[in-house]
Each structure stands twice: as structure tokens, then as C-alpha cells.
Simulated assay, not measured.
Amino acid sequence: MSNYDDDSYFQPANTNNPEAVTYCPNDNPFITFAGRQWWINYHWTQNQGTYVWEPFQSIFDPTIIQNGADGIQLQILPNADPTKAWRTSEVVLMDKLGYGKYLITARADGGSFSDLDPNAVFGVFLYQYSDAPPSNGPNVHREIDFLEVLRNAGGNAQFTLQPYDAYDPHPVEFFKIPSGTSMITIINDWYVDQGGNRIAAYSLYSGDWSFENPPPAADLIAQWAPAQNSTFATLIPDHTDTSCERLHLNLWLMHGAAPQGPQSVTVTRFEFQPAS
């Protein structure tokens, strides 16, 4: 690929495309949350509209994303036409923030993250649509999966790096969010240490916390330090003046498998502290 770090997918492909924005409320492909702009029709294409094939097989519908006083509500809802795919949600931060500490709080509107439908996935991750140059390493999309709430062999949630399937053991940390956990705080610190090593420090806490009111150690659910594994350390991406990884928040269905009923997660806070 010759166009490394190509950011043209964002503008004018979808955000300035008259056909693409008609899928958005009031023809506006952006919402404002935490003082920043978030893009809501990321998955639109000329041939498929908002429908996406594997692994989603679902419709990423900008019209079901609710932006209210509590935050961004991501939903999974049935289609009015029962023969069509369920509708799912994703928002993408327009700012390319790079190295620093990311904090996200979220509420399981159904009661508990442990009760999220087995076919549903709540994801918080950095991702770059285009390929990074070879100097970045094997993680070609600069993907850092801060958190994925989904059923797996090791529990109901995981921290991950990519490419997942290229390594054995896989670059993943499985864990279980305890029953009754309705609020979570996700913190991921991505930086370069004094020795020039890339670091991604994953942490998940129960409760509603912020940088001003940090989570206590007693509320820690899981943490992961992949750089301690020399193979996994090579998968932690870099950030450069031309890189274009952005933060994604989504709620979707694995391979389009229908849930037992509608699902909803509200992201209530986003904070960022640049690396010093």
C-alpha cells in the first residue's frame, strides 16, 4: 500500500458526502460529547449504506444513537422489517489525540455489564482505517482494544492487541466483570517510556470515576501490562505526526447473531490527559 496513514476516509468520504449524511439526523454526521466532536456514520459505504458485512452483519444506524444529558447512548435495536439485520451503534472521535491517558465511564442500561446479551459486544478502542507504515510494526491499524465486553472462554470481557490470530498465545487478557456491575471506568495509558519503549497500560474499575476523583484500588476489576511480554510489546503501536488512529465506542452483534432483546450502554464520560 502506497498511501500509508491515509485519512481521506473521514473527509470527504463520509463527513462531507451529501448522500452519506442523509442517513444522519438533520443531515449532521457529528454529535458533541465531552466538548469534542464524534462521527456517527463511520460505517457508511456507497454500495451498502449503513449495512456492514463480517464480522458484524448488522446495520450501524446513526439515528438510534442518543446524545443526552447523561452522555452517548449506544443501542442495539430490531429492524422494523424483521427480515433485515438488527441495528447497532458506533461513534468515532474526530480528534487524533495520540499518546496519553484515556478515561471512559459507561453504564449498562440493562442493569449490569455481566448481563449484556451473549451476542452483543461493547467496544472501546483506538483504530486507524488505513494501514500504518511498516515502521509501526505488525499492528497495521494501530489498534488498541481498551475493552471488549463479550462472552469468551475466559469470562465476559477482555483487553486485546492486534493482530489477534497471528500469535499463540494470543495477545489478550480475559477476565470477568462481576455480576451486578452497572458502572465501569476504563483507563488506558499509552505512552513511550524513558527507554523508548511503547507502553499500553490497561485498567478496568467498577464505579463512576474521573481523573479528578480517581478510582480506588479496591474497585479494580482487571489490569494488563502487555509490554511485559516481548512479543506483545511489538504490537503496541506508535503515534507520529501523520498517524490517524481515533477512539471508537461501539455496541454491535457478533456475526449479526440476534440478541434476546434490545441492548443499551450509555457512555457517560470521556477524559484525556496528554502524555508528558
Rank of each mutant, 00 (worst) to 15 (best):
N47Q: 14
V21P: 01
G196H: 10
P134A: 14
A233P: 00
F125K: 13
T88M: 05
H170R: 12
Q66G: 02
P214K: 14
K84G: 02
F272V: 01
I65L: 08
S8C: 05
T160A: 15
H255D: 09
S243A: 09
T268K: 10
G137A: 02
N28T: 13
N28V: 11
A225F: 14
T268D: 10
F232P: 02
K176E: 11
S276C: 03
V172N: 06
N119C: 13
I236A: 06
I221S: 03
R151S: 03
G71A: 14
R36E: 13
P259E: 07
Y99L: 02
N139R: 02
D5K: 04
P237V: 14
V121A: 07
V140F: 05
N14T: 15
Y102H: 13
Q273L: 09
E19R: 11
T32R: 15
A233V: 12
A227V: 10
G98P: 01
Q260E: 10
I199A: 12
E143S: 03
Q75C: 11
I144W: 02
R269V: 10
K84N: 05
L220C: 07
P138M: 03
I221W: 00
W86A: 02
T15K: 02
F10N: 06
Y205W: 06
T15V: 14
F122C: 04
Q66D: 15
H141D: 04
A108S: 11
G49E: 11
D193L: 09
T234V: 12
S114V: 00
I31T: 09
P25L: 05
F125D: 13
